[in-house]
């Protein structure tokens, strides 16, 4: 059943890893979310434009190829500029590069304005539960 919440989904930057994106698209739809999937190689501006026109409730950013931190910088500030004040921002995928602890990476993404940060191997169910908590108060 549809829950009325809209998610903008995409893989940021010059990243072409398409499989995880398709899985998430499917899983979120099954869970009742309205998904606007932008696919791979999505720029920050495309995420923002899509969220503005569709009045989305959350933006879910994937990064698999290792340049996630660079690609995600400034996204929150641009959302604020575009009037998407307080929109929920998640990031996930292979965002830990090299041998650094996840907690440090998570902290840096939190500082960038992401509400939740998911490490490698996160199952779609975990994300769906988080979305339900944050958007539906369940």
């Amino acid at each position: 059943m549809q829950n009325g919440k809209k998610l903008v989904l995409g893989v940021i930057g010059a990243d072409v890893h398409a499989v995880g994106n398709q899985i998430l698209n499917h899983a979120f739809r099954e869970a009742g979310f309205d998904v606007i999937n932008l696919g791979v190689m999505v720029s920050q501006e495309e995420f923002i434009d899509a969220a503005v026109e569709s009045a989305a409730d959350a933006i879910l950013v994937s990064s698999l190829y290792g340049h996630g931190e660079l690609d995600c910088q400034g996204l929150r500030e641009k959302c604020d500029e575009a009037g998407l004040t307080g929109i929920l921002l998640y990031v996930g995928g292979n965002i830990v590069v090299g041998k650094q602890p996840f907690e440090e990476v998570e902290k840096r993404f939190h500082n960038m304005g992401f509400n939740r940060v998911f490490g490698p191997g996160t199952s779609p169910e975990t994300t769906i539960q988080a979305l339900r908590e944050d958007l539906l108060g369940q």
């Binding site: 809209k6 309205d34 503005v52 026109e53 569709s54 009045a55």
Partner: peptide, 9 residues
């Protein structure tokens, strides 16, 4: 125009 259906109003 402006907004997708059900989007920004």
């Amino acid at each position: 125009s402006g907004g997708t259906d059900g989007g920004n109003r």
